[in-house]
Simulated assay, not measured.
Amino acid sequence: MDSPVSIVSYGKNAARANGLAKNRILQIEDLISVTKNGSDVFRLNSAESFPVKIHGETLQLFWFARDVYKKTSGALNPAIFPVVRAWGFTTGKYRVPSDEEISALLKKTDFSKVTLAGVTSAPVPFVASLSMQTGMMLDFGSLGKGFACDEAVRILKKSGITSALLDLGGNIYVLGKKIDGSDWKVGIKNPLGEGVALSLKVHDSAVVTSGCYERFFEEGGKRYGHIFDGKTGRPVENELASVTVVCESGLYADALSTALFVKGSAAAIEFWQAHKDFGLALIFKDGSKWLSPGLPLLSELSVER
């Protein structure tokens, strides 16, 4: 997942359960990685003809991503990958593409043109096929860790684990309560400086934060973050420093935190008001905050640079 991963479980089967969860995370990475030769996504992105057969897990991500893509008016867009790659965020060779290059690449980022060619009754490993325009590329990185987290939690539960803390590169999931029966305390990092901005009291929940304060590059005195606006083909520039989503699904939290960061504060709050099936915490670049009613807040600290 290109991130440090930590799973801490409690119970007599903890060691075995953690091993099984780790293996499941690695299986998912092998299917959805954009760089691993032979992964579903790698084969899709390098295909010369379509349809391309994919595994069930990739199909699940496609279906979910398509749904959130529609609900967020394209703010979550797995097809933005050609643009992200041009800026160097997948290679480390950072650069600012020309307006002409961005315009040309944007023509290859319409996720609605990725279609399901048909689910087959063929035995594992292939269960479906996808088709897309030549030159298009996908990246499920904006929801892959959330999906892997949910799968790891499913494995832990199946193994009899009732108390665990998972951290997949900042995607936090707390299973059950702590072994003393109390809720877990999860801190939300100050995106403008050091320390913690908020502390939440949660159980059986995912806590996922998106922002550009850790992954970025600077050129010509300007900072460019790794989260992109699919309409402009450029890193998001708005009033938000970070977006945190709290809900029972790691996949939903991962997808929404990215999409709502792209949409900006007004649209993010409007989306929450329309759905209210998750908790939302917005931290602004000026240090102010907006917290959805009912967010399990333990403490709130001032945000300073």
Results as ranks from 00 to 15, higher is better:
121 S>T: 15
139 D>K: 01
76 L>Y: 11
181 G>T: 11
162 T>H: 11
173 Y>M: 00
78 P>A: 12
123 P>K: 14
176 G>R: 02
155 I>W: 02
91 T>Y: 13
104 A>D: 10
115 T>W: 07
171 N>C: 04
175 L>P: 02
120 T>K: 09
78 P>V: 11
184 W>T: 01
128 A>R: 07
178 K>R: 15
167 D>Y: 08
74 G>H: 07
157 K>Y: 07
95 R>W: 06
98 S>C: 05
155 I>N: 03
129 S>V: 01
121 S>I: 12
123 P>Q: 08
132 M>L: 12
131 S>M: 01
149 C>N: 02
96 V>G: 02
98 S>N: 08
121 S>M: 13
187 G>E: 12
132 M>S: 13
123 P>G: 12
87 W>Q: 10
177 K>V: 06
140 F>A: 00
142 S>I: 01
137 M>T: 05
169 G>R: 02
185 K>R: 14
125 P>H: 08
85 R>Y: 12
95 R>Q: 15
168 L>I: 05
137 M>Y: 03
150 D>N: 06
112 S>P: 09
170 G>A: 02
151 E>T: 05
144 G>H: 04
187 G>D: 10
124 V>M: 14
71 K>D: 13
71 K>Y: 04
106 L>W: 12
170 G>R: 00
174 V>R: 09
75 A>M: 07
148 A>M: 00
189 K>G: 08
161 I>S: 04
154 R>A: 15
114 V>G: 04
148 A>E: 07
187 G>V: 11
112 S>Y: 05
140 F>Q: 06
119 V>G: 08
138 L>Q: 01
138 L>W: 00
119 V>H: 06
190 N>M: 08
164 A>Y: 00
133 Q>E: 15
160 G>H: 02
190 N>H: 06
87 W>L: 10
168 L>D: 00
180 D>A: 11
149 C>E: 02
119 V>C: 10
148 A>V: 00
135 G>W: 03
88 G>L: 05
140 F>C: 01
152 A>M: 02
160 G>L: 03
77 N>Y: 10
188 I>S: 02
138 L>H: 02
127 V>R: 15
125 P>K: 09
102 I>T: 15
75 A>G: 09
90 T>Y: 15
182 S>K: 14
186 V>P: 00
108 K>R: 12
90 T>I: 04
164 A>G: 07
107 K>S: 12
131 S>R: 00
172 I>H: 04
164 A>V: 06
169 G>Q: 05
149 C>I: 01
77 N>H: 13
94 Y>V: 05
147 F>R: 02
181 G>V: 12
162 T>W: 01
90 T>E: 13
157 K>D: 13
121 S>L: 14
181 G>M: 08
165 L>K: 13
125 P>W: 09
123 P>Y: 08
105 L>T: 12
103 S>I: 14
140 F>S: 07
173 Y>R: 01
93 K>T: 08
106 L>K: 14
168 L>W: 01
167 D>F: 09
